[in-house]
Measured scan of single mutants.
Amino acid sequence: ETIMEVNLLKGPKGLGFSIAGGIGNQHIPGDNSIYITKIIEGGAAQKDGRLQIGDRLLAVNNTNLQDVRHEEAVASLKNTSDMVYLKVAKP
């Protein structure tokens, strides 16, 4: 597993990826991690090219996303300014 830091500039459609996982909404049984499950065509993440489906999202800005509820992860992604710092684990 490789840890990678990505600074992503939000586009008109936001960050351009979808997530799944978290406490109460496990993407993988027994694993509370938050995973990237979709990269949106023409979105910021696709244009940047570094994020991939299956990457594990560890942090957004200063918010640690390990062992959080799905709703908390979504809220932390929404409550960001235009430049967003992401910390991901690549499988």
Rank of each mutant, 00 (worst) to 15 (best):
N79M: 13
A75M: 10
G14M: 03
L77K: 00
D31M: 04
L65R: 00
D31K: 05
Q46C: 12
I19H: 03
P29R: 12
V74P: 02
S33M: 14
G54R: 05
M4H: 06
Q46W: 13
D31G: 04
D55N: 11
A73L: 03
Q66N: 05
A89V: 12
K90A: 04
G11F: 04
T2V: 10
I3E: 05
V88Y: 03
E1M: 09
I40L: 14
Q46N: 15
Q66H: 04
S81N: 15
H70N: 10
S18T: 11
L51N: 00
V60H: 02
R69A: 10
D55A: 11
K47H: 10
R56H: 06
I19F: 07
G43H: 05
D67C: 07
Q26K: 05
E5Q: 14
Y35P: 00
T2G: 12
P29E: 09
S33A: 10
G30R: 10
K38D: 15
N7F: 10
G24A: 13
L15N: 02
G54S: 05
E1C: 05
S76Y: 14
V74C: 13
T2C: 09
L8P: 00
Y85D: 12
D48E: 15
E72K: 11
A45Q: 00
N62L: 09
V60G: 01
F17I: 03
K38C: 15
Q52W: 03
H27I: 03
D67Y: 10
G14A: 04
G16L: 01
M4A: 11
M83Y: 06
G22D: 02
V88F: 04
T2R: 05
V6Y: 13
I36T: 01
E41I: 13
L65M: 09
L8G: 01
F17Y: 01
G16A: 02
L57S: 00
D48I: 02
S18E: 08
K90I: 08
G22S: 03
G42N: 08
S18K: 06
Y35Q: 03
D55V: 06
G24M: 10
N61L: 02
A20P: 00
S33I: 02
F17A: 01
V74A: 13
N62K: 14
K87G: 05
Y35A: 02
L77W: 02
E1H: 09
T2M: 15
G42L: 08
I23V: 14
Y35R: 04
F17T: 01
G24C: 09
I3N: 12
Q52R: 11
N7C: 05
V68T: 08
E71Q: 06
N62D: 15
L9V: 13
N25D: 10
D82G: 09
P29D: 15
Q52L: 08
D82L: 10
G49Y: 02
L77R: 00
G54L: 03
H70D: 05
A20M: 10
M4K: 11
G54P: 00
N25E: 10
A89W: 14
L51W: 00
S76I: 07
G49E: 05
G42E: 12
A89G: 11
A89H: 03
I36G: 00
D55T: 11
E5V: 12
F17H: 01
T80F: 12
N32Q: 11
N64W: 08
I3F: 06
A44C: 11
Q52P: 00
D82Q: 09
I34S: 02
K47W: 07
A45F: 01
R50N: 09
Q46G: 15
P29L: 10
L86Q: 01
G22F: 02
T2E: 07
E1T: 13
M4D: 06
Y85V: 13
K90Y: 06
G21Q: 04
P91R: 03
L51M: 08
G16Q: 02
G54H: 06
N64E: 12
E72D: 05
E71L: 08
V6D: 01
G54K: 04
K47M: 07
K38E: 13
I23S: 13
